[in-house]
Amino acid sequence: MTQSIDTQAPPFFRRGSALLVRLALFSLLSCGLLISDSHFRHLESIRNIVSVALYPLQRLTSISGIVSSSINAAVETHAQLRRENTELKEENALTSQITQQAQALQSENSRLRELLKLQGQSPIKSTAAEILYTARDVFTQKIVVGKGSHQGILPGQAVVDNIGLIGQVNRVHWLSSEINLISDKDQVVPVQVVRTGLRGVLFGTGQKDFMELRFQPANIDIQSGDMLVTSGIDGNYPMGLPVALVRTIERNAAYAFARILCAPAAGVNHYSQVLILSFVRETPPNTLEADSKSKKKSERHR
């Protein structure tokens, strides 16, 4: 009794639609996501929802940091702690002196500004935030912190550590936000050389250890070791935050510009807490834009 064997698989072995069809379907879907995210930025709401779902996970990971630091604390010896204590006391004495001077200078500065009828510097509010993790994406330099739009963080705000500027808030979710480090390839900071007062623009290179001061003439007065601080011209960063130290200067007569490499001043890679500065500066309206608009209007009227 022979039975012909069916070439088709019996229904209980079926695996849904063909593999290739599913591959095509899902890659099309991914392509759609990619295009709409990179070109139109329609998907911020999806990002927001997923980020809220991710938040407990991010919190869980920061527990690992707490555990490791508590282990460290338990292992630390009495002598170590005492040494650290004396160091901190010395540092405290030094900084309190500087703060007193700063207060006197600030009051003097505000009086002078009043006399000269210059715009006063608006006070800076700061929010402390904890770094949750470094983003895995190797193409950008990003960190994720545990404060978001719920705590009043806005995109574009400056982020500093105890030494100086480390980055700018890029994308804000409800409970967390992404920060672009100043060494990111797309990050640009307007700076000023402390020694000479020269203004320039500092570009990130995508590598964490150096940045480039571009478009400066080959005969520029700059030395290695010069400190660069934010110039405050763009209205994004408050004035005078340390940004970078000049490392090497290559002057090549074949090029119009000098190649100036700088190292970030703040610890772009080693910190656990950061401050997010909210700073509002009333900038005068952009006269060039206003002019071109009014011109267009008058042309239309004709």
Partner: peptide
């Protein structure tokens, strides 16, 4: 299958702040 991978990829993209869909494409392959 593809569905689970796709959802996991979405989470990865948001967690890393990368382009939405980049991991989806990779995981689908």
């Amino acid at each position: 299958g593809f569905g689970a991978a796709w959802v996991a990829a979405l989470f990865m993209d948001v967690a890393e702040g990368s382009l939405l869909g980049q991991h989806a494409m990779a995981y689908v392959i």
